[in-house]
Write a protein that binds this DNA or RNA. Structure first.
Length: 496
RNA sequence: UGCCCGUUGGUCAAACUGGUUUAAGACGUCGCCCUCUCAAGGCGGAGCUACGAGUUCGAGUCUCGUACGGGUAACCA
């Protein structure tokens, strides 16, 4: 049974790609809606025409879809409460603004940006919090009219400010943070609700839209806490009931300890980047949910359906969480190992092509070979793009062996093993993993060299790495010719 | 600086309204095992209630203070 009372929204501004923090906000709203069988709505907040970017909206929606979200109402699917772009909702704002004006709950303000700037500077110098100072303070009605006429005569275009009630407490029971309260005197003075270009500001538009769209719950980032009292004032001015608010902690950077900012380079910021690197959307979804929310039991790997079922907004964390990319990789690897083969092969194949390892349109034989290669790397791959690095030896002739790997094979037995191995595989009637394994075992029998002394030289000589997937299979995939070549090179190098 | 919020191990975090938990679990880290090698996998170890008071028979859980951290102070959202 659907719950018509529960309506939540994700309201991005189309200023760029989908940021990981916003994705998280979207996901938690989505989970909430689906858990309670309510509606999930997307609304585009594009009142800042200067900051909107061309494909911003499309990119936001595409990435949300990629993460596996779907919505009941939105700019692309419509709905009964449209339009779903704020820029198209001017007609719904104007009468509301007029009402506020008529009731003197809002007024035209002529202070210029320069004046405001100077005001703030001066206040800062005095050590007080920067705030807007009422420009008609102490004036009689006539004086006020004169001041306005004067400003108009100078050609100044006004903004509209909301008259903030004096010394009034605004409070709410936050779904995440508990009880929060603000004194109206501490929020910075009368704030702008309509900009000079006639567009409403965010703080006004959200309230009007959330009310008109009958939004019941608002889950958003912690950075909106300070906006909430302003919005509450507007609800109050209209006599509307405010939705329930839940302010989720922010994701902070491990590097700076501050909220993830676009400039932070230690963490990939945008969903798109993970998409491109070949992360699995379900894994990313899983990881993001675990950031600031915890399930009841001890497991941590869940699919979307399970999350929807388990979701409980009271388990949202109050304190900020650090983005741990190591854990993301681990989660992704879990998914890589458990996804069906075709999905992984398809994604990894695309990375190999993108990385220039395989031709644009590989033939069937190549695909078959690649399938085996990808399969071999599945246990250790965390995201698909890694295969280009990991499997490099399959495509290019490696450079000289160095470092630990070189030390490992600079001994008496390594050349013995390598020579024997080279000799034997030349003769092999069938060059496959079974035969290769037999070959290695026969060397063990004949030379009495075993374990690490036996396997490491071969691995290093052939792959130049000390770690990697199953050796016999890897050697089969590299092929006899290249294997022999690598063996010879290595022998040359260590015998010099 | 004002206002708001937070603080359990390196990281994410559990512990319902104060009372068996030796303070779960996961990532990471370390060690061991497995195996023909490394990885993967299995097993195990180390590691935390910021500090100081108070309330209470009893505090990670409540109160106050300190410290630290975050958010916010736009004609951005």
């Amino acid at each position: 049974m659907a719950n018509n009372k529960i309506r939540v929204r994700y309201a991005p501004s189309p200023t760029g790609h989908l940021h990981i923090g916003n994705a998280r906000t979207a996901i938690f709203n989505y989970l909430f809606a689906r858990h309670y069988k309510g509606k999930f709505i997307i609304r585009i907040e594009d009142t800042d025409t200067k900051r909107n970017v061309a494909d911003g909206e499309k990119s936001q929606l595409d990435n949300l879809k990629w993460l596996g979200l779907d919505w009941d109402e939105g700019p692309d699917v419509g709905g009964d409460f449209g339009p779903y772009r704020q820029s198209e909702r001017r007609a719904t704002y104007d009468p509301l603004i007029q009402k506020l004006l008529d009731e003197d709950k809002a007024y035209y303000s002529y202070k210029t940006e320069e004046e405001l700037e100077a005001e703030r500077e001066e206040q800062k110098a005095r050590g007080v919090m920067p705030h807007y100072e009422y420009e008609f303070a102490g004036m009689t009605e006539d004086e006020r009219k004169a001041a306005i006429a004067d400003a108009e005569a100078k050609g100044l275009k006004p903004v509209i400010r909301f008259r903030v009630p004096k010394d009034h407490t605004y409070e709410w029971d936050d779904l995440v943070k508990g009880h929060v309260s603000f004194n109206s005197d501490s929020i910075g003075g009368d704030f702008v609700i309509v900009k000079r270009d006639g567009m409403p500001t965010y703080n006004f538009a959200v309230v009007a839209d959330d009310h008109n769209m009958q939004i019941s719950h608002v889950f958003r980032g912690d950075d909106h806490v300070a906006n909430t009292p302003k919005q509450l004032m507007i609800y109050e001015a209209f006599g509307w009931q405010a939705p329930k608010f839940g302010h989720m902690s922010l994701i902070i950077s491990a590097d700076t300890g501050k909220k993830l900012s676009k400039r932070d380079e230690t963490v990939l910021q945008f969903i798109e980047q993970y998409h491109e690197l070949g992360y699995l959307p379900d894994a990313l979804f899983n990881f993001i949910v675990l950031l600031g929310w915890s399930p009841v039991g001890e497991d941590e790997i869940f699919n979307q359906r399970q999350f929807i079922k388990m979701y409980d907004e009271s388990r949202l964390s109050k304190s900020p969480a650090t983005f741990d990319s190591k854990k993301l990789e681990w989660i992704n690897n879990q998914y890589v190992k458990n996804s069906d083969e075709d999905t992984i092969v398809d994604l990894a194949l695309r990375q190999l092509i993108k990385g220039g390892k395989l031709p644009e349109n590989p033939d069937a034989l190549t695909i078959e070979w690649a399938r085996k290669l990808i399969d071999v790397y599945r246990p250790q791959m965390s995201y698909m793009a890694q295969i280009n690095e990991m499997a490099n030896v399959f495509f290019e002739d490696p450079e000289l062996i160095k470092g630990d790997a070189l030390e490992e094979i600079e001994n008496e037995t390594a050349p013995v093993v390598l020579k024997a191995f080279a000799e034997k595989i030349k003769e092999l009637p069938i060059f496959d993993k079974v035969e290769i394994l037999k070959t290695i075992k026969s060397i063990q029998k004949e030379t009495k060299i075993k374990g690490r002394q036996l396997w490491m030289p071969i691995r290093i000589a052939v792959t130049h790495e000390m770690e990697g997937p199953e050796l016999p299979e890897s050697i089969e995939l590299i092929g006899r010719e290249k294997t022999l070549k690598h063996l010879q090179q290595t022998l040359d190098q260590i015998s010099k």
